[in-house]
């Protein structure tokens, strides 16, 4: 700290010495007239200080009354505008996110709805399919039953006609072979007996 002060001090002293040495030719400048540095001609000091004061005061007035408030205004306005814009952007993003969430919910709902519908439809189809199958089975069974009945009927009929045909044939054959006239009733009884036994 002391070393620091000393170096600072010596620097200041050095500068002061420069100033003093520079100030020496002042007399020369004032005495000789134009011999030394023009800066050291004290006769020019009042005018320079006066005009410095005038111009600096004028500039300070313009700066503090017009220029600085104007620049500060513009900077503040811009800052506000940027903050506003950021706010708006945040709001819009939040809105967009809400819309997106809503949309995603809607999509999920629609998807589950669709799923339900598909399942329902499949269930319905399966149910109607089963019903149709059952009906068809019933119908088939009925048809089969009817057909079987008809077959049985026809079979009986066929058997009936076979009996008469056989009786006739037997009567004919007996007549041809033996020359005996056999009554229908007798033949019928014999045929029936043969069929019963043969069958």
């Amino acid at each position: 700290m002391i070393a620091n002060s000393v170096t600072r001090w010596s620097r200041r002293i050095g500068l002061a010495a420069v100033a003093t040495v520079a100030a020496l030719p002042t007399w020369a400048a004032t005495d000789g007239g134009g011999g030394g540095l023009p800066q050291l001609d004290v006769s020019t000091f009042p005018t320079q200080v006066f005009w410095l004061f005038v111009s600096f005061a004028l500039l300070y007035f313009v700066m503090s009354k017009v220029a600085i408030p104007r620049i500060a205004d513009v900077l503040e306005e811009r800052q506000e505008r940027i903050e506003d814009d950021i706010e708006t952007a945040d709001r819009l993003r939040a809105e967009a996110e809400a819309v997106k969430a809503e949309y995603e919910k809607a999509v999920a709902d629609a998807r589950s709805d669709a799923h339900d519908l598909v399942r329902k439809a499949m269930d319905e189809i399966a149910a109607s399919h089963a019903k149709a199958e059952a009906e068809a089975a019933k119908k088939t069974a009925e048809t089969t039953k009817a057909a079987e009945a008809r077959i049985a009927e026809q079979r009986t009929e066929a058997l009936e006609s076979l009996k008469s045909v056989a009786s006739e044939a037997a009567a004919e054959a007996t007549a041809k072979l033996t020359g005996l006239k056999v009554t229908d009733a007798k033949v019928g009884k014999a045929v029936e007996a043969a069929m019963q036994g043969g069958a």
């Binding site: 020019t44 009042p46 005018t47 005009w51 111009s55």
Partner: peptide, 8 residues
Amino acid sequence: DISFTNSA
């Protein structure tokens, strides 16, 4: 002397 000068 406060004349207007080149400096001023």
